[in-house]
């Protein structure tokens, strides 16, 4: 599992939590971005194996980030981290091209289960 994971969230605390959970699941190589626009330039500048993004962010939302990454022709797994309220709009995110979603607050185990699901084989 040498995949570099791009963690996108406008909250620094949330990024820390997500990165800690990723590290605990064996994903040591992570890179951060504070909004969708920054994430897109990071994504284009390096080899990213997995994207974990928040939905609601300034500059560019997780939804628009997903659309932009898919428009580049990339099939990279994208996990959207949603709140309970955004869960009702998850159909929209799926149509935009996310691979899966996680509802906040999520546990280390929930993230790990999703990671294993998409990074196995």
């Amino acid at each position: 599992m040498s995949k570099k994971v791009l963690v996108v969230d406008d909250s620094g605390t949330m990024r820390k939590i997500v990165i800690r959970a990723l590290n605990a699941s064996g994903f040591a190589d992570t890179v951060e971005a504070a909004d969708g626009a920054e994430a897109l330039s990071v994504f284009q500048g390096s080899e990213i194996g997995l994207v974990l993004t928040d939905w609601n962010m300034p500059n560019k939302s997780g939804l628009d980030l997903t659309r932009d990454i898919r428009a580049l022709g990339s099939k990279v797994p994208i996990f959207m981290i949603t709140t309970e309220a955004e869960k009702g709009r998850v159909v929209e995110a799926i149509q935009a091209g996310i691979t899966d979603y996680l509802t906040k607050p999520f546990t280390q185990e929930a993230l790990q289960a999703k990671l294993e699901k998409y990074t196995q084989a």
Partner: peptide, 8 residues
């Protein structure tokens, strides 16, 4: 990696 499901 052993996944436990009790919290979920």
């Amino acid at each position: 990696m052993e996944t436990t499901y009790d919290t979920q």
